[in-house]
Design a protein around this nucleic acid. Structure first.
Length: 504
RNA sequence: GGGCGCGUAGCUCAAUGGUAGAGCAGUGGCCUUUUAAGCCAUUGGUUCAGGGUUCGAGCCCCUGCGCGCUCACCA
């Protein structure tokens, strides 16, 4: 591969090392402590008043180097902490000092053996007695100078260009500790969701990602092909239909945390693949699921942040239950003045929207028009956690109708900070009604072939065996992590967000 | 897919159409013992790519590529 001048200098250093019999990439590291452990061990020893020094062999990446003639200071960093190394010619010798000067660069991994002490400025450091290269870096990290001021890392320039940060996430993570922190929060979030559901006796399961029939949402799928079976397969757009089959099978409470794939546009809140948690709970309805939802999000905040107040886009958001409950119809009346119940047909609603000057796509099904009113006018106003409930039947083919209101279903969506976070309903368990819904959806979206909800005969068969009443729930984990970390785009909470391929 | 903006040294950024610069990083030197964002010197460029206008283009025009914002799309 092509190397720039900085890299060529380092490659020459590798040649020198090999010529001198030094392996720049040895296999074994003999560290006795991770950096954080060493710092704690020193502090404990100091507190106990022991005369005896704490000996340690540490390892990490060189993030700063200050050569001062006969002494030198360096900061190294491992996954736990940054610690200072102190080199003195008395211990490492003139040859050692020369090697340090000639062969070591920022970004290299070093192993250093010595004893812990405090410098005159009070910083816990390792007084190095011997050291060696454990991995030479050829490419310099994309960061300029670092220093410690009052225990804080101060960086004078760092990798900032979003394209480079996403394409070379490894470099981004290596130089931007706040980016690493986002993904620690992400891991804690997933763990907290799992803990919460496990504590409620939900069973975690895994269902197919490659599916012969996709379903459970209205989205365009990715299509792939199994060569040996000579069969088209779809990457799942939701877990829903498989998880509900498991309820039929006798697992009363199931959940899955995994990846969904939707072949649609990208935006600050959409990525072609995203992480979803779905759960299904027999003998529960959507009211019960609302309670579980608000408790779950509050639990996650407690576990991950230790508080229930979030800052997001300058808004202060309190996720403490109970969340506001707002009937969808009323919410739309409040923000647009249109009572959707007064317009049972698409044509009627379209006329009403036209009269009020709201934009719409002519010829849309009624549900799409309602969706447009929600997305454009209602959703942005829902800053504090809000459950919007009771949706039109025709955009909810898997949800159960409200008793006595055939055109409305028991469905809610949770909104936080003006962003849709989750979607849930009392699940439709009447196989005859379900078959009818599939047929209606087929007709409704006939013009829009790719987004049509395909008939799933096997799912209907499962339901025909008898499906208990249940509540179901789905939440975008990426969006929750955005909220918890105050990130404005989904790309910041994805380790490797999708970018267009570069021409080579 | 549309609109707007951006793309200059390893990183962060400058540069009226008139010799492409700075800071940091790098390289060389100074520095005899607890800090340094140190001091002195110095290297480094296909200005995203390809065309065009012009005596002369990083800058103006066209095309392409990539990224960002935004609209569309999006349960």
């Amino acid at each position: 591969m092509e190397r720039n001048d900085l890299e060529k200098i380092r490659l020459e250093k590798i040649d020198v090392m090999r010529a001198e019999g030094i392996d720049p990439y040895p296999t074994t590291t003999y560290l006795t402590h991770r950096n954080q452990e060493a710092i704690l061990a020193f502090e404990e020893n100091e507190k106990a008043g022991n005369e005896e020094q704490v000996k340690a062999t540490l390892a990490g990446r060189i993030r700063a180097m200050r050569l001062m003639g006969k002494i030198a200071f360096s900061h190294i960093e491992d996954g736990t902490a940054r610690i200072q190394l102190f080199f003195r010619i008395n211990e490492i010798g003139e040859a050692g000092m020369q090697i340090l000067k000639d062969l070591y660069d920022l970004g290299d991994y070093i192993e250093a053996q010595g004893f812990l002490f405090r410098t005159r400025t009070g910083e816990i450091s390792l007084h190095v007695q011997s050291f060696r290269m454990i991995a030479k870096a050829v490419t310099p990290l994309p960061a300029a100078k670092d220093e410690m001021v009052d225990g804080q890392v101060v960086r004078h320039a760092t990798l900032n260009d979003p394209e480079t940060r996403y394409r070379q996430r490894y470099a981004d993570l290596a130089v931007n500790p706040q980016v690493r922190e986002i993904f620690r929060v992400r891991a804690s979030t997933v763990r907290a969701i799992r803990d919460f559901l496990d504590q409620m006796d939900f069973l975690e399961v895994e269902t197919p990602i490659l599916q012969p029939i996709y379903g459970g949402a209205a989205a365009r799928p990715f299509v792939t092909f199994h060569n040996q079976l000579k069969q088209e397969l779809y990457l799942r757009i939701s877990f829903e239909l498989y998880l509900k089959r498991l309820i039929v099978g006798g697992f009363d409470r199931v959940y899955e945390i995994g990846r969904d794939f939707r072949n649609e546009g990208v935006s600050y809140k959409h990525n072609p693949e995203f992480t979803q948690v779905e759960f299904y709970m027999a003998y529960a309805d959507y009211q019960k699921v609302m309670e579980i939802t608000e408790n779950m999000v509050a639990y996650v905040c407690d576990q991950v942040l230790g508080k229930r107040i979030l800052e997001f886009r300058g808004n202060t958001i309190d996720v403490t239950p109970p969340w506001q409950r707002l009937e969808l119809r009323q919410g739309i009346i409040n923000t647009t003045g249109i009572d959707i119940n007064a317009y049972p047909t698409a044509e009627g609603l379209e006329a009403a929207m036209k009269e009020k000057g709201y934009p719409f796509k002519p010829g849309s099904p009624r549900g799409k028009l309602v969706d447009a009113l929600i997305g454009d006018y209602l959703e942005p106003t829902l800053l504090q956690p809000t459950f919007l409930y009771d949706y039109p039947r025709d955009i909810s083919p898997l949800a159960k109708s409200k008793p006595g209101e055939p055109s409305t279903v028991e469905r809610f969506e949770g909104f936080v900070a003006g962003m849709e976070l989750c979607n849930a309903f009392s699940e439709l368990n009447d196989p005859l009604d379900q078959e009818q819904r599939f047929l209606e959806m087929g007709n409704e979206y006939e013009s829009d072939d790719e987004e049509r909800h395909p008939m799933d005969e096997d799912y209907l068969r499962a339901m025909s065996y008898g499906m208990p009443p249940m509540g179901g729930f789905g939440m975008g984990v990426d969006r929750l992590v955005m909220l918890l970390t105050n990130q404005q785009t989904i790309r910041e909470v994805l380790l490797f967000p999708h970018l267009r391929k570069l021409e080579e």
